[in-house]
């Protein structure tokens, strides 16, 4: 899948692909999550992200183990179940110079962590929030999660009757500036999405359908490899052009839409079946709903608003990380205490 895999090839900051790898995966062979890990490694390498500037975050579950398998030089925080967003919020305020890359699962985000997920989006905390979505709890052996589709059959034979929670639709509803859906088996689509997400200033929600080979890959499961492949309906072909590369993408007129991100990078979307405007939130919600009715997994960049302010603008933070400000910047001088004390000193003599 990779284009620059040969050892010795270095990226723009002089690192090799190997230097973006992590520990060996302990997930089941063939797990969709491992493919996503591969895409993350590749995308971070291509983007030339400095590993020490990355904070890898996750919650609990199979998906949340994966940050150990990529960017081994980065700091990682494998949080408690469903609470990665609060960790991310604290990390960002303490050091807004870090690139935050979060991996969660469907149980972690849509069940136990739904509340925190929504508030993360609402605050527009700059986190690349990847949901490795297989519709099932893997580590506890095959229970449905809140993203299981209506009518999907579990390995035990039980059929899910409840409406799935669509994290993309929720994110759009809350004004998230970057919402995408992809498939672990389509690295060609996932990689540019990831690279664009790294350049986005704000929460980037990427829901990646990632089949569970052990508990949700059978006939009757809507999130099996076979079913997702058959029903994958990409909206467009995605090309990402980073701000430091001066490449013109040449498409016939009327075939593409281009969106420029805050750092000057560009996303080019080449239309497939019909024209799709990723700046239209209502249209995005319509596409998601229609896709569900037609049993299709609509993938691609569903919604983009690159200009929305992120949390640091709201807080008016100083440029330097709060975490390492020196004492004289954070302890007011003695005259401040004296001023406060004398305002409280009204006793008589």
């Amino acid at each position: 899948m990779s284009t620059v895999e040969s050892n010795g090839d270095k990226n723009r900051i002089g690192l090799t692909l190997n230097e973006y790898k992590g520990a060996k995966s302990t997930l089941c062979p063939g797990c969709g999550h491992d493919a996503i890990t591969g895409s993350i490694i590749q995308a971070a390498f291509e983007a030339g992200i400095a590993p020490h500037r990355v904070a890898k975050l996750s919650g609990i579950g199979c998906s949340s183990k994966t940050p150990a398998y990529f960017l081994g030089r980065s700091h990682g925080f494998n949080a408690v179940h469903g609470r990665m967003p609060s960790i991310a919020t604290g990390v960002f305020v303490a050091n807004h110079g870090l690139t935050m890359l979060g991996v969660s699962g469907d149980g972690d985000t849509a069940s136990i962590g739904l509340g925190q997920f929504l508030h993360l989006v609402r605050r527009n905390v700059p986190l690349v929030h990847i949901v490795e979505n297989n519709g099932v709890y893997g580590l506890t052996k095959g229970q449905f999660s809140a993203t299981a589709d209506v009518g999907s059959k579990a390995k035990s034979g039980r059929v899910n009757e409840l409406m799935p929670i669509d994290v993309c639709a929720l994110a759009i509803e809350l004004g998230c500036g970057f919402v995408a859906r992809s498939f672990s088996g389509d690295p060609k689509q996932l990689r540019p999405i990831l690279r664009a997400a790294f350049s986005h200033r704000g929460t980037a929600v990427i829901d990646v359908i990632s089949p569970c080979v052990t508990f949700n890959n059978h006939e009757g499961s809507t999130k099996s490899y076979l079913n997702v492949k058959e029903h994958d309906a990409p909206l467009h072909d995605i090309t990402f052009v980073p701000h430091y590369e001066n490449i013109e993408v040449d498409y016939p007129p009327g075939e593409t839409r281009e969106v420029t991100l805050h750092d000057g990078s560009r996303i080019t979307l080449r239309k497939l079946e019909e024209d799709y405007d990723p700046g239209d939130a209502l249209r995005a919600l319509e596409v998601i709903h229609r896709g569900r009715q037609e049993d299709k997994f609509v993938t691609g960049i569903l919604y983009l608003d690159p200009d929305k302010d992120s949390l640091d603008a709201d807080l008016h933070l100083v440029d330097e990380p709060l975490a390492t400000l020196p004492l004289e910047r954070v302890r007011p001088p003695k005259k401040v205490l004296d001023e406060v004390m004398s305002s409280l000193m009204t006793g008589g003599a």
Binding site: I87, T89, G90, V91, A94, P321, L322
Partner: peptide, 17 residues
């Protein structure tokens, strides 16, 4: 839960949280 989670995220980065 979020309040303490944010404290841990910030402290992990070195903030006085």
């Amino acid at each position: 839960i979020a309040a303490i989670g944010m404290v841990l995220g910030a402290s992990w980065c070195g903030a006085r949280a």
